[in-house]
């Protein structure tokens, strides 16, 4: 009834679309065009040589892309299960307590506000082989030193700070969702003997399902774009390019190697991949929306 008349849509949606269109979609269309050119350096942008789909062909043969793609999928997996997972557990826990809830809400947010440069440096000083904190602790315990950023361990060691830093972000979002559940629903539940884990499983989770779905989409898109923290912890995909993600590899190609056209093609790949995965998540997790 209320939403039969579609005319107000113009006021609601068009302003956003205009802003997005001019300052995001149009620039990105330019980027798509650039991906068909060979452009050496940002200053040469708009010039360059038309090479058709050469940049895309090149991606298939580029081992750097394969490595970053693999790592990005890892990161996506970590982000979905650990980042959103831990955030969900923490949010449910904080939601269930009253004493100290304010404190935890505040301190869990700290890592999100601290710049990647500072967190990256801290982890560098954790991992450093000579005199890093982790190895100092191992030595004190009478154990052998460990090469934390070895070829095998590096991807996990680089993902760790990224995952950890953004738990607070999803925590705040999920907590906001939980707080939106009216209290009377829980009171009725308590009367019916639904408590603890059951309460969480049958009442809280279904009611914040849409919020969790949003978190998943943000985690997926975030891991496809991830750039600054990995770049500080392990520049140039150290060691040996084994920890490159699509985001860092795109930066590397555009700014360090100055292959702007190729970098543009990588960002097209990032967007296409992100759309495919987001679309799938939306389909898989589709449920009837529950209103309170």
């Amino acid at each position: 009834m209320l939403y039969k008349d579609k005319r107000p849509l113009i006021v609601f949606i068009v302003p956003s679309l205009i802003i997005l269109g001019i300052f995001l979609y149009y620039p990105f269309i330019q980027n798509i065009i650039n991906s068909f050119y060979e452009i050496s350096g940002l200053a040469a942008l708009g010039g360059g040589k038309y090479i058709g789909i050469e940049n895309y062909k090149r991606m298939f043969a580029d081992p750097g892309i394969h490595q970053s793609l693999k790592n990005t999928l890892y990161m996506m997996f970590f982000a979905v299960f650990f980042q959103v997972g831990i955030a969900l557990v923490l949010a449910l826990m904080v939601d269930s307590i009253t004493r100290g809830a304010q404190f935890f809400r505040t301190v869990f947010f700290f890592p999100v506000v601290i710049s990647a440069t500072a967190i990256g440096l801290m982890f560098n000083l954790f991992y450093s082989y000579n005199g890093g904190l982790f190895n100092q602790i191992l030595l004190k315990l009478g154990l052998e030193r460990v090469l934390w950023l070895s070829d095998e361990l590096a991807i996990y060691m680089v993902s760790l700070p990224v995952i950890w830093q953004y738990v607070g972000f999803y925590f705040v979002i999920i907590l906001t969702g939980l707080n939106g559940i009216p209290q009377d629903i829980f009171e009725y539940a308590l009367l019916d003997g639904v408590t603890g884990v059951k309460k969480t499983w049958y009442i809280s989770l279904p009611l914040i399902w849409d919020v969790i779905k949003v978190c998943l989409i943000l985690a997926i898109t975030g891991s496809l774009k991830v750039f600054d923290l990995p770049w500080v912890v392990a520049p140039n995909g150290a060691p040996k390019g084994l920890t490159h993600f699509l985001g860092t590899y795109m930066y590397f190609k555009t700014f360090i190697s100055q292959s702007v056209g190729y970098g543009a093609a990588i960002s097209v790949l990032i967007v296409v991949l992100g759309l495919v995965v987001s679309f799938t998540v939306n389909k898989v997790f589709k449920r009837d929306t529950i209103v309170y």
């Binding site: 560098n124 082989y129 392990a234 150290a238 060691p239």
Partner: peptide, 11 residues
Amino acid sequence: PVDVNATKNDI
């Protein structure tokens, strides 16, 4: 250094 492949110039 043992971590020559992954350490940083500053360090």
